[in-house]
Amino acid sequence: MSAATRTTQALVTAPLPQIIEKLGLAIAEGQFALDRNSVEMARMMAETEVEIDGQRYNLLALGFTPSFYAYTEATVEAKLSFTLSESTETSVGGSVSGRVGAGLYMAAATVSASYARKFSVEASGSSSIAARLVSLPPPEQFMALLRERQRG
């Protein structure tokens, strides 16, 4: 099986639904990890205190907030390129020579022929997955609960 045939067959039989499903699950897992990290940062900010003019404040009370992120889009892209070329070369050549001497005539003939058929296959494929991540403000309910806990 040629390289072009193998590459074409791999693309045609690619499990596109499974690729999209895995991309979706990877984004969901990534989003969960990002959210968990932001909550952990909020917890660390609540525990980190700074002394100002003899009074102690945690970072949340001073207005610091954890960063939250969200995936806004994801793209799966696959490209395939292949080139197939064929060429045929044929050549025929010959020569005739003769000689006369002492009542004799001699003749000689040579014939040469060649035939070449060439095939060339070039195949390439590539794929990419891209995701866009943006920063979001913390959820308002989360921040309201943190402020309420700071007062109490």
Rank of each mutant, 00 (worst) to 15 (best):
M1E: 07
T5P: 02
T5A: 15
T8E: 11
A10W: 06
V12T: 12
V12S: 10
T13M: 05
T13P: 00
P17K: 01
P17L: 01
I19W: 00
E21C: 05
L23D: 02
L25R: 15
L25A: 14
I27Y: 00
A28C: 02
A28I: 04
A28L: 09
Q31E: 11
F32T: 15
L34P: 02
D35F: 02
R36C: 05
N37H: 14
N37I: 08
N37P: 00
V39A: 09
E40P: 01
A42E: 10
A42I: 03
R43E: 11
M44V: 12
M44S: 14
M45R: 06
M45L: 13
A46M: 08
A46C: 03
E47Y: 06
T48I: 00
E49I: 05
V50P: 03
V50M: 08
E51R: 10
D53K: 11
D53F: 12
R56M: 06
N58V: 02
L59C: 00
L60E: 03
L62H: 01
T65V: 15
P66I: 00
P66L: 02
S67Q: 15
Y69S: 14
Y69Q: 09
A70P: 02
A70T: 14
Y71E: 05
Y71P: 07
T72I: 08
E73R: 15
A74L: 01
A74D: 07
T75M: 06
T75R: 06
V76D: 06
A78L: 07
A78I: 04
L80G: 10
L80P: 01
S81D: 10
L84P: 00
S85F: 04
E86P: 04
E86N: 10
T88P: 00
T88V: 12
T90E: 12
S91L: 06
G93T: 10
S95Y: 08
S95A: 15
V96P: 00
S97E: 11
S97C: 04
V100E: 13
G103C: 03
L104D: 15
M106N: 15
A108M: 13
A109K: 11
T110H: 08
S112W: 02
A113G: 15
S114R: 13
S114W: 04
Y115R: 09
A116V: 13
R117W: 07
K118L: 14
F119R: 14
S120N: 11
S120K: 14
E122K: 12
A123E: 00
G125E: 05
S126N: 05
A130V: 05
A131V: 15
R132Y: 04
L133Y: 01
S135K: 12
S135T: 12
P137D: 09
P137V: 04
P139C: 05
P139Y: 01
P139S: 05
P139W: 04
F142T: 05
F142C: 01
F142A: 05
A144C: 02
L145V: 11
L145E: 15
R147C: 05
R149V: 09
Q150N: 13
R151L: 09
